[in-house]
């Protein structure tokens, strides 16, 4: 396990470096150079040169990369081209919306789908088991923003129970107020996520129920639920853990859509605006933080999976 930890950590580091290079290269491919964002169409050549010098676009690409990377190593993400505000604090403020949104939705979806998935598998002959299976099919087909639009129209505009969009100006100063703003977004994300998670948990439960080891445990006098609890939970968890990692990462990165629906000042909407404004430092900063989060989620999921299943410790990457 220690060998695995070391190898997996090295893999984390290497993939992070690859990702950073990829982000940098991708952004150089954007039409024009970063200085365009600062200028109007009527700019004189002198103004263009000055702007290029300001953002460092006049220097060689490798030098630009090393400068950026050196700053990153000191957790300095630079300043926005547009607002001149430092990127780091802006991202931190945005995360105070996106992280609670992601984690709470994830927790709600996990609880709902665990119950629903096990019920769908064990009661596949009852009407409610079939109903759950049917609903879980919708998970991959329903766009998140559509669910959001419908929920807003019913619960915010129609019934006026909750705010339809926005987030308190003073952030979490009044937690109840902030949570009220996040309720509909959380329900939206959790609804869609639990539908797709239910499919995986149902299928893992079915695999466990049909397994030989469960039958042998029962052949030695173990009751069905005892055998399911002792042997089924761990075995069923192995495939589910990697799915959970992927779902969590997807939700974190996919927050851009739900943040748009509900007008939330999160990381996703920051990225969207930065892309529209060609605000390179902001784009790079958001991607840097997102990549870090996603790679760490993958790292934790892989470690957790190998703690449960010793057979996997022989292979290095996420796929078995």
């Amino acid at each position: 396990m220690i060998v695995y930890l070391l190898r997996r950590s090295a893999f984390l580091l290497v993939s992070f470096l690859i990702a950073m290079v990829a982000i940098f290269v991708l952004l150089r491919l954007l039409p024009g150079d970063p200085s365009n964002a600062l200028l109007s169409v009527t700019a004189t050549p002198e103004q263009i040169a000055a702007a290029q010098a300001q953002v460092g676009a006049d220097r060689p690409v490798l030098e630009q990369f090393l400068t950026w990377f050196g700053q990153l190593a000191q957790f300095d993400l630079g300043e926005s081209f547009i607002s001149s505000l430092p990127v780091g604090p802006e991202i931190a403020a945005r995360l105070s919306v996106t992280i609670p949104l992601t984690l709470i939705s994830f927790a709600v979806a996990l609880v709902v789908s665990l119950v629903a998935g096990v019920v769908a598998a064990t009661r596949s002959d009852r009407w409610y088991g079939i109903l759950i299976s049917g609903f879980s099919q919708l998970g991959v087909a329903v766009p998140v923003f559509w669910v959001g639009i419908l929920l807003v129209s019913v619960f915010a505009v129609g019934l006026r129970w909750l705010p339809s969009s926005g987030f308190p100006r003073d952030d979490w100063a009044d937690p109840a107020d902030a949570l009220r703003s996040l309720t509909l977004p959380i329900v939206t994300v959790a609804l869609v996520m639990s539908a797709s998670l239910t499919r995986y948990i149902r299928s893992a439960t079915l695999d466990v129920m049909g397994s030989d080891y469960l039958r042998s445990a029962r052949a030695q006098g173990s009751g069905y639920s005892e055998a399911l609890w002792r042997h089924g939970v761990r075995n069923g968890a192995v495939p589910v853990i990697s799915i959970l990692g992927i779902e969590l990462a997807t939700t974190f990165l996919g927050a851009v859509v739900v943040e748009s629906v509900f007008g939330l000042p999160g990381l996703g909407s920051m990225l969207l605006r930065a892309i529209e404004q060609h605000d390179y430092p902001n784009i790079q900063g958001v991607l840097f933080v997102s990549t870090l989060v996603v790679l760490i989620i993958g790292f934790v999921a892989d470690i957790a999976q190998r703690l449960v299943d010793p057979r996997l410790r022989l292979s290095i990457s996420g796929n078995r």
């Binding site: 993939s15 690859i18 990702a19 990829a22 992927i246 990462a249 997807t250 990165l253 996919g254 997102s290 990549t291 996603v294 790679l295 993958g298 990457s317 996420g318 796929n319």
Partner: peptide
Amino acid sequence: LDVVIAFP
């Protein structure tokens, strides 16, 4: 590929 796939 593993790194790219981690992103939606």
